[in-house]
Write a protein that binds this DNA or RNA. Structure first.
Length: 557
RNA sequence: GCGGAUAUGGUGAAGUGGUUAUCACCUGAGGUUUCCAACCUCAUGUCGUGGGUUCGAUUCCCGCUAUCCGCACCA
């Protein structure tokens, strides 16, 4: 592995721009921080990675793909907690005009102040009267909120509703839960994936592709029954992985041992860590530069039970690229409370429960007329009475003494068979930052070597995500070689999911170099012999080895 | 957001208060060449952006935008 260095990074980003892989967006208008274009070469890499990711997860067999809007109404993100979570509250010092974060000012008294609402913060600040860190005076203005989500309006003018561009794709899976539940004929476990754009109005985007304001995410929401212990085959991952656990620090351990020891707190989380590791390495990321880091309890998002980041070492140091979180029942419950809709799964008991119901209720025909709108409260109180209660009795309801006569009540005595129950499924969520993964795949694949005393670069991307599958090169563009080469190129492009590139200008060595630089795995060279016996040479990018193959037997993908 | 540095063809660099802004590589056309950035000829293409100072600004000054490095922030 080559050493990462700022010089190498500069050469790499220069190449990415020059060859049309990744470029700052809107550059002719001066550019905007945090936005990148995938160029003519990068565009297909992105698509290849997306497709690879999709088939990787769909192959589990109980996962479906959905797609939901990026524009999201305010109440959805309010319910999910993002409106609160993604908002910083600023308060301005009236003396020196310095803006401070409201939660930071009272952090010493309330360590969890960042979860406070605007009203709570305002109240605490007027109670505590913290001093301004800039000028030392305590004289605060109104609290203003600064949201890290892009806000927008749905519809126009007076009838418009408030909304945001989504900060994650996950909420679409939760709001579509009932449809997905029906699709799987109401049987857990199942999952839904979505690949799409997410938006965060970062204060200062940095490090190129690492922190973007608009980025590609791919998320799986996997719904499970919290009462079932799932047994996944973790032994398929025989090699030890680098784990940094909250309590035990860094270790080399297999997934099955880590789950067994309780370091990974849920076996499905461990299982997905393995599947994630396989995916990430399959797109060209060096397994030795991967580690999993467990979130500390105080760092964990408000909903999570356990969370592991997959971090990758590259030109920017260790960067988290995937998060695998056990979100408990947080999200479905939140949407259920906000909407009153049932977002639950049905669990049938192995043997139905027989419940003896023995108690009291009111006789509406007497209590209603006599107590009017007080009747409801009496009903609640009576139904809580033990079966052996004796009437008449007096009950205290809302500081009032109420006499309950036998004519007011009815005995209830019956058996009920309860065959199951509704419960809120738990969710395990692997969330991938596609741009960060693509970046590291390129970063790890970029090789600078010396070839015949000259600097030479090769992008050793795996075939599955290379931007172009094959380059077709006529040795010379004359004597009919060019015609044959063009024909081969066109026939290859007609094949399903094969993309060929024709390159006829420059010396053959130069054209191999061009092809190697952007990671094309094979070059087909057409020469005089091809005209005679219908064979061509196929050159392999990483080894430079060539093999003579019949044109009819060319095999790609 | 704060502090520092930077901004010249596609890439990497040089340079200047004055009329036509250099160089290498790259790219394109033609020639040459029987497999790994060769060579010859020709061609295309640049002073981030807005304002100020000035007879004249790519150059000096200011704002903006972007990039890089610290700090802060951050699923």
């Amino acid at each position: 592995m080559e050493e990462f260095s700022t010089d190498r990074l500069a050469r790499l980003t220069g190449m990415l721009k020059r060859r049309g892989l990744l470029l700052p967006a809107f550059e002719i208008h001066g550019g905007v921080a945090g936005f990148y274009d995938y160029g003519p070469v990068g565009g297909r890499i992105r698509n290849q990675v997306n497709q690879a990711w999709l088939s990787h997860w769909l192959s589990l067999g109980n996962v479906v793909e959905i797609s939901s809007p990026t524009v999201t109404p305010y109440p959805v993100l309010e319910a999910s907690g993002h409106v609160g979570e993604f908002t910083d509250f600023l308060v301005e010092c009236k003396k020196c005009s310095e803006a401070s974060r409201a939660d930071h000012l009272i952090e010493s008294d309330y360590p969890n102040a960042d979860s406070f609402t605007k009203e709570e913060l305002s109240k605490k600040i007027s109670e505590l009267m913290p001093i301004c860190p800039a000028c030392g005076v305590s004289d605060w203005g109104e609290i203003s909120s600064q949201n890290l989500m892009f806000s927008t309006r749905i519809g126009n003018a007076d009838s418009a509703r408030e909304g945001f561009l989504r900060p994650e794709t996950a909420q679409g899976m939760f709001t579509s839960f009932t449809s997905i539940y029906r699709h799987f004929r109401e049987r857990l476990p199942f999952g839904a994936v979505q690949i799409g754009k997410g938006y965060r109005n970062e204060i200062s985007p940095r490090q190129g592709m690492i922190r973007l304001r608009e980025f590609n995410m791919a998320e799986l929401e996997y719904f499970i029954d919290p009462e079932i212990e799932y047994h996944h085959n973790l032994d398929q991952w025989k090699d030890s992985l680098t784990l940094i656990s909250e309590n035990e620090g860094e270790m080399q351990v297999t997934l099955s041992k880590a789950v067994e020891a309780g370091i990974i707190r849920h076996s499905t989380v461990g299982y997905f860590m393995g599947i994630t590791f396989d995916f990430v390495t399959s797109i060209g990321i060096n397994p030795e530069l991967i580690r999993f880091r467990q979130h500390e309890s105080n760092e964990m998002a408000h909903y999570a039970v356990d969370c592991w980041d997959l971090e990758i070492m590259g030109s920017f140091g260790w960067i988290e690229c995937v998060g695998i979180a056990h979100r408990g029942c947080y999200d479905l419950e939140a949407h259920e409370m906000a909407t009153g809709q049932r977002l639950r799964a049905w669990r049938t008991f192995e043997t139905p429960k027989i419940v003896e119901i023995d108690g009291w209720t009111i006789d509406g025909s007497t209590v209603g007329p006599e107590f009017k709108n007080f009747a409801g409260k009496i009903k609640n109180a009576v139904e809580k009475l033990p079966p052996d209660s004796i009437f008449p009795m007096s009950l205290e309801i809302d500081d009032d003494e109420v006499n309950i006569e036998p004519r007011h009540v009815k005995k209830i005595q019956r058996q009920e068979k309860i065959s199951g129950e509704w419960f809120i499924p738990h969710v395990v969520e692997p969330a991938f930052g596609i741009d960060r993964l693509i970046w590291h795949s390129i970063d790890h694949s970029y090789r600078e070597i010396i070839k015949s005393g000259e600097a030479y670069t090769i992008l050793s991307l795996p075939k599955s995500i290379s931007p172009i599958d094959v380059t077709v090169l006529p040795l010379f563009e004359k004597d009919g070689i060019d015609n044959l080469a063009r024909k081969i190129h066109e026939n290859l492009c007609k094949r399903d999911r094969v993309l060929s590139n024709y390159d006829g200008s420059g010396s053959i060595g130069r054209r191999y170099a061009r092809s190697d630089e952007i990671g094309v795995p094979y070059c087909i060279t057409v020469d005089y012999e091809s005209l005679e016996n219908h064979t061509v040479t196929v050159r392999e990018r990483d080894t430079g080895k060539q093999e003579r193959v019949k044109i009819d037997e060319l095999n790609f993908k």
